Amino acid sequence: MTTLTALTTICPPPASPPSTPDWSQAETELGMRLPEDYKQLMATYGPGEFCNFLSLYYPHAPREAADLTGPMPARLRQQIEEVRHNARQPWPLPHPPEQLFATGVTGNGDYLFWVTQPSDKPDAWDVAVNQALRAPWYTFTGTLTQFLLAVISGTTRVPFFPEDLLDNGTTFTPARPTVEPPPPTDQQDSMNPSDIRAWARANGHPLPDRGRIPTEIIEAWKRGHTV
């Protein structure tokens, strides 16, 4: 039984397979190969949350904070150094910051990183977990899928993860689809602030030439205008 099969046995993935990312494009943008176990993991589960606690980053995610190919991994490396050096007593790092590549986050603000050594052998990368960009650190020897299986099965406990993490069962909750804002209506397109101000003054609502137009005045203007 493979690690992924064991994981899906105790934590079933979504019934409908998620869309598969363009791995070639993602790796080109990152300038590095990604672990094969991660690709298979994402192809099986897609974006979402394990045990209502742990989420993995995903290529080209709609939210920047969850985008594996966005600025978040580099930003976190910088923030680790900033937090560390601003502390009264800087703590030692178990891995050089340049070797850490963020791959997930927990509900408590703990971050998961690949330890990208050797850089040309992504399938050999270990997983490091950091408590909210501060000490302590926990390093797991194995792949990201092996780490998830070990944590979700209860065979490994990260010291700063909640003790009741598994009390509600081993679940995976798919991320909600991003809702695109509705296209502007013709009435919204025709909403000229100058016209609204002129209408408001003509109807006894004094407004300055600049600043926010109160919502109630905008709604009153809408009620009196049809396109």
Rank of each mutant, 00 (worst) to 15 (best):
V179P: 07
T8P: 10
D67V: 05
E81F: 01
R63M: 04
M42I: 15
Y138N: 09
A15C: 04
S55L: 02
Q131H: 13
F53M: 08
T156P: 14
L4M: 01
R176S: 13
D189L: 13
F113D: 00
A66D: 15
I213S: 00
Q25I: 11
F140I: 10
M191F: 11
F53T: 11
D123W: 00
P92G: 14
L30P: 05
T20N: 14
L34H: 07
E219L: 13
E49M: 12
G154C: 07
H85S: 15
L68A: 01
R210A: 12
V83H: 00
V151K: 03
E36V: 13
P208F: 03
D186C: 03
T3S: 06
S24Q: 13
L166R: 01
T9K: 07
G169N: 04
V127H: 03
F160P: 06
A132R: 14
A65R: 07
T156M: 08
T185D: 04
P182F: 05
P59F: 02
A124G: 07
D209A: 14
F147D: 05
D195W: 04
I10H: 04
F161C: 07
E64Y: 08
A135M: 06
E98V: 05
K39I: 04
A66T: 11
L166F: 00
H205L: 14
L165W: 03
Y57F: 14
T156R: 15
T106S: 12
E64N: 09
H225G: 00
W221N: 06
P181F: 12
Q25T: 15
R157W: 10
I218E: 08
P184M: 15
W199S: 04
R157G: 04
A198N: 08
P118K: 06
V129K: 02
D189M: 11
Q79P: 02
T2C: 13
S24R: 09
P136K: 05
Q188A: 05
A150N: 06
I196V: 12
N203E: 01
I196R: 00
D123Y: 11
T185M: 14
P71Q: 06
P62F: 07
W114P: 01
T170M: 07
L4S: 02
D209H: 10
C11E: 10
T9F: 09
T170A: 10
I217T: 02
A128L: 13
Q187M: 12
G142W: 09
P214S: 02
G48W: 14
S24A: 11
L144S: 08
G48E: 00
E216C: 04
W137K: 00
T143S: 10
Q117F: 09
P13D: 01
L93W: 09
E36Q: 15
D120C: 08
S55T: 08
I218K: 11
P182A: 12
P159R: 01
K222W: 09
K39C: 06
Y58H: 14
Y111N: 07
H95E: 15
R223Y: 12
K39A: 04
D110Y: 03
M72K: 12
M42G: 05
A135D: 08
S194V: 08
K39T: 03
P177D: 02
F160N: 11
P12F: 08
R201L: 07
E82V: 13
M1L: 13
K39R: 13
E163Y: 11
A87M: 13
S19P: 09
L7P: 02
P97Q: 03
Q78F: 07
E49S: 11
A175E: 15
Y111F: 11
H85Q: 15
M42Q: 10
G107N: 05
N203I: 02
P62D: 09
T156D: 06
I152N: 09
